[in-house]
Design a binder for these strands. Structure first.
Length: 351
DNA sequence: CTCCAGGACA
DNA sequence: TGTCCTGGAG
């Protein structure tokens, strides 16, 4: 690690002229809005967040309305964004702010970080933007910017190395202008110092960047991933009765916890055996390949349409034999519920 | 199609 | 340290 120290002042000046200023959660110091945007921006790109952010604010204009809502409604608005623990924590955090902080977010990063879903970096971002607190953020974008600028080549998979990078992040903080500096780091990572093909010519730190001097900015950050994905295969039952369909609420903990999904079976034989107990025909739908962090999920959906005049007793027998905690939904009602993305697509495609 | 980025938490 | 999801890039 050699080279001139990256200048915070240079980054601040760059942010003011070349950074982003028109995002809807900028130009407000309302902790509720900043917090909401930061949670959504965890693991999610700006372009995707924009629509969700707007819908959330329309439905939940303040922390009180969010805290008062049932979790189901929060998950419904979050549907499609992924990492649904963020939505559950968002809701829990709103309730904690109401119950333990008199309805106002605490004004220090240390206190913010005690709230559900707010880790060290998110707490620092909120505190910097809303309260001008001089604290370091270190999200994925910033890790990339800093490791490149500093030529920090130690494996971030090791906790000790990550701690050292945090120390660097703190040492680089400006005396004043923490808002523009923090935003500048984010903007640099998002628009210039990108994962592939970084635009070094447009970078305010190009003349001090070690990675650039080495001619291989893409080599940073170094992070060995040892996680190997497993495979899973399940069959899903899309049971419809006229304009109604049957959804089950998935248990917590686990994948898609709290979301509404289709009854899940171990395999095709199990679905077919189940449907064989009742009237009507069952039809295979195209497979859906869904990738999660830790496994590849091969989903094999089957559509079972109950005949129009299926006896009430027969329907009840089927309903009570279905796995999971379910009920009937009208199609529009289902599409307004908290569905995982692939399930939403399946129901969307339903004629 | 395949590959991969991206925070918090138990 | 493994668990959570999705979309964008190539």
């Amino acid at each position: 690690m050699t080279g001139k120290r990256p200048s915070a002042a240079t980054l601040v000046a760059w942010q003011r002229t070349h950074g982003r200023h028109a995002l809807p959660w900028q130009r407000t110091r309302d902790p509720y809005r900043v917090w909401l945007s930061e949670i959504m921006l965890q693991q999610t790109q700006v372009a995707t967040v924009l629509g969700y952010y707007e819908r959330f604010l329309l439905r939940f204009p303040d922390v009180r309305s969010l805290a008062a809502a049932p979790q189901d409604e929060v998950l419904a608005l979050w549907s499609g964004l992924g990492y649904y623990s963020r939505a559950r924590n968002l809701h829990a955090c709103a309730r904690a702010v109401i119950e333990h902080h008199g309805g106002s977010f605490p004004n220090s990063s240390a206190a913010l970080a005690k709230l559900p879903g707010i880790g060290r970096s998110t707490a620092a971002a909120i505190a910097a933007f809303c309260f001008g607190e001089r604290t370091a953020i270190l999200d994925g974008n910033v890790k990339r910017v800093l490791t490149r600028a500093l030529g920090f080549g130690d494996d971030l998979a090791e906790a000790a190395h990550e701690r050292r990078l945090w120390q660097h992040a703190e040492a680089l903080l400006p005396k004043t202008g923490i808002e523009a500096y923090t935003q500048g780091l984010m903007d640099l990572g998002a628009t210039v110092c990108t994962v592939r093909r970084p635009a070094c010519d447009a970078c305010p730190w190009s003349n001090c960047c070690v990675a650039r001097a080495e001619g291989r900015p893409e080599a940073y950050p170094v992070k060995t991933r040892k996680l190997k994905r497993g495979r899973r295969e399940n069959s899903l039952l899309l049971l419809t009765s006229g304009a109604q369909l049957w959804l089950v609420q998935r248990p917590a903990p686990g994948v898609w916890a709290g979301l509404w999904s289709l009854p899940e079976f171990t395999g095709d034989e199990a679905v077919q055996a189940f449907a064989a107990q009742g009237p009507g025909r069952i039809e295979a739908l195209p497979h859906v390949h869904h990738v999660l962090t830790h496994f590849d999920w091969q989903l094999k959906p089957w559509h079972w349409q109950l005949p129009p005049r299926t006896a009430a007793a027969t329907r009840q027998r089927i309903e009570s034999a279905l796995p999971g905690d379910g009920r009937w939904f009208a199609r529009d009602e289902a599409l307004a519920a908290g569905l995982p993305a692939p399930v939403r697509r399946l129901i969307d495609q339903l004629a």
